[in-house]
Computed example of a mutant assay.
Amino acid sequence: MSADGERVVAAARGWIGTPYVHQASARGAGADCLGLIRGVWREVLGAEPALVPAYTPDWDEPAGEERLWAAARAHLLPVVPCRAAAGDVLLFRMRAGAVAKHLGIQGRTGAAATVIHAYSGHGVVESPLAPWARRIVARFRFPGHAA
C-alpha cells in the first residue's frame, strides 16, 4: 500500500461506526456512501471540488442517468481494474441494467480484500469485498494519490 493509500484508508476507517444517513457527510453523526467519499476527500485533500446537489436514493435510476459515475469521472482518476490498490474508490452497480449508485473505498487487497462503505441499515462498515466484487463497474483514485 502506498503512503497515499494508507492515508485514504486510515481516514476511511475513522468513519467506521458512523450511522447511515441519506445525503449526510459528518463523521460520527451520519453519512451515506457518497458522504463517506466526500468526508475522506476533505480529510485527505481539503475542500471538496464541487457542491453536491440534493439527490434521491435511486440516483436517477428510472431515467437511466449515470450521475454518480459522471461525477466520479469528473473529480477522480480512473484506474485500470487489474491495478487494484488500497485506497481506491470503488463504484458499484447493484444489479444488472441498473445505474451505478454505490461507492466504497478499498481497505485491503488480496485474498482478504475489504471495502469500507456506508449503506442503509449498517452505517459505515468495513466488509469483505468478495460478495461485492462482481458489482464493481469502475475504480478511481483521489487526485495526487498513486498506488
Score class of each variant (00 low, 15 high):
residue 2 S to E: 10
residue 3 A to I: 06
residue 3 A to S: 14
residue 7 R to C: 05
residue 7 R to M: 12
residue 11 A to V: 13
residue 12 A to D: 11
residue 14 G to R: 04
residue 15 W to E: 11
residue 18 T to G: 02
residue 20 Y to M: 09
residue 22 H to D: 02
residue 23 Q to V: 12
residue 23 Q to C: 11
residue 25 S to F: 00
residue 25 S to K: 08
residue 28 G to Q: 04
residue 29 A to M: 00
residue 31 A to D: 03
residue 33 C to A: 12
residue 34 L to G: 08
residue 34 L to R: 06
residue 36 L to E: 05
residue 37 I to P: 00
residue 42 R to D: 03
residue 48 E to N: 01
residue 48 E to T: 07
residue 49 P to N: 14
residue 49 P to C: 14
residue 51 L to G: 13
residue 54 A to P: 01
residue 55 Y to T: 07
residue 59 W to V: 13
residue 60 D to C: 15
residue 60 D to T: 10
residue 61 E to Q: 15
residue 62 P to K: 05
residue 62 P to C: 04
residue 63 A to G: 12
residue 66 E to G: 03
residue 67 R to F: 02
residue 68 L to V: 07
residue 69 W to E: 13
residue 71 A to V: 03
residue 73 R to C: 06
residue 73 R to I: 03
residue 74 A to F: 06
residue 77 L to E: 15
residue 80 V to A: 12
residue 85 A to I: 05
residue 92 F to K: 00
residue 92 F to W: 00
residue 93 R to F: 03
residue 94 M to R: 14
residue 100 A to W: 02
residue 101 K to M: 12
residue 104 G to R: 10
residue 105 I to A: 14
residue 106 Q to Y: 03
residue 107 G to A: 06
residue 107 G to W: 03
residue 112 A to M: 06
residue 115 V to N: 04
residue 120 S to E: 12
residue 121 G to F: 10
residue 122 H to C: 09
residue 123 G to T: 02
residue 124 V to G: 10
residue 124 V to L: 08
residue 125 V to G: 00
residue 127 S to L: 06
residue 129 L to A: 13
residue 131 P to M: 06
residue 131 P to W: 05
residue 136 I to L: 05
residue 140 F to V: 11
residue 141 R to P: 01
residue 141 R to M: 01
residue 142 F to V: 07
residue 144 G to S: 08
residue 146 A to L: 14
residue 147 A to N: 13
residue 147 A to Q: 11
